[in-house]
Design a binder for these strands. Structure first.
Lengths: 153, 153
DNA sequence: GCACTTGCTTGCAAAATGCAAGTGCTTGCT
DNA sequence: AGCAAGCACTTGCATTTTGCAAGCAAGTGC
């Protein structure tokens, strides 16, 4: 195992919220998975692997485990294929969206423009609230299809 | 040297803003320094060392170097003591505040309550805009005293 | 001159990461 | 039923990053 699962219940090394939040999402990969789940409708292992950042399989497995442990993400087996799994954001995970959107805003202001994210750039700048509801609606849509039997998320 | 300075000009491994932002602030330490500079009026090396997270001296030196390289932070020698340095946030660095505040909000919602941050908790929840202007005013105050000769920040 | 502070650097052990190659389960095809 | 292929991982190992303790030069206070 690459790393032990860090639950929020484990001993905090700091009394500061920021520090404790960073213990969960403060690394190069975790928020990228949240991004994929939130904005790019990705739900499967292989889809995360296909992201442009090229996450290694061991890191991906490790981060998914942590996200599950933290309760940011849930999983089910694919209804049509037992050998596949579907990952989805819980409300705790979805609530990271404001953080991501602020990062997008900051990036839009200070980073060299990237074509691929121009779409979200514009939507964040024009009407962030609209974007949020659109994103959440889209996820709800998916959940209705895939999770209808469950009371999760 | 612990790590090479990663400028935003270096080759991006992804076209995604989130990814590129995380290359700058996506680690356990960088945002804690920004937090100290922004909310706790810390400006000196030894003050960062005194934070409850206990950053190691080599990591601190490395992160300060990176923050300077990225243009998030500026430095001057202490006007009254040549052997001390003063670090301060540029506007690029200050503009990370919304990200930090969203982290505080998320932490307030999902993390076990911590006494030490209750103050900022309340201020974020009650009136985020007021908090922002208060924080920025406080920094400006400091800058007027310390940086009066310079046109920086 | 001398002890002390300050902002680092250095050396080394431990941990996290990245890469390539498995492993075991399921599935589709014949 | 048999077999190749897909899928979600795991494993081993080299490289990189962290963490800790110790040092060190430049300045300051006496």
């Amino acid at each position: 195992m690459t790393a032990k699962a860090a639950t929020s219940k484990s001993i905090q090394r700091s009394p500061c919220v920021v520090s404790n939040v960073l213990e969960i999402i403060g690394d190069r990969w975790t928020l990228l998975l949240v991004r994929d789940l939130l904005f790019f409708n990705k739900h499967e292992y292989k889809e995360f692997l296909a992201s442009p950042e090229n996450i290694a399989t061991n890191i991906l497995a490790d981060r998914l485990k942590k996200l599950l442990n933290e309760g940011l993400v849930g999983e089910i087996i694919h209804p049509e294929n037992k050998s596949r799994k579907l990952y989805y954001l819980t409300s705790k995970g979805k609530d990271l969206m404001p953080i991501l959107l602020e990062m997008v805003k900051w990036g839009a202001a200070y980073l060299p423009e990237t074509k691929e994210m121009k779409l979200i750039f514009e939507r964040v700048k024009n009407d962030p609230e609209l974007l949020k509801t659109q994103v959440l609606d889209s996820l709800e849509q998916w959940e209705k299809q895939m999770l209808k039997a469950n009371g999760t998320a």
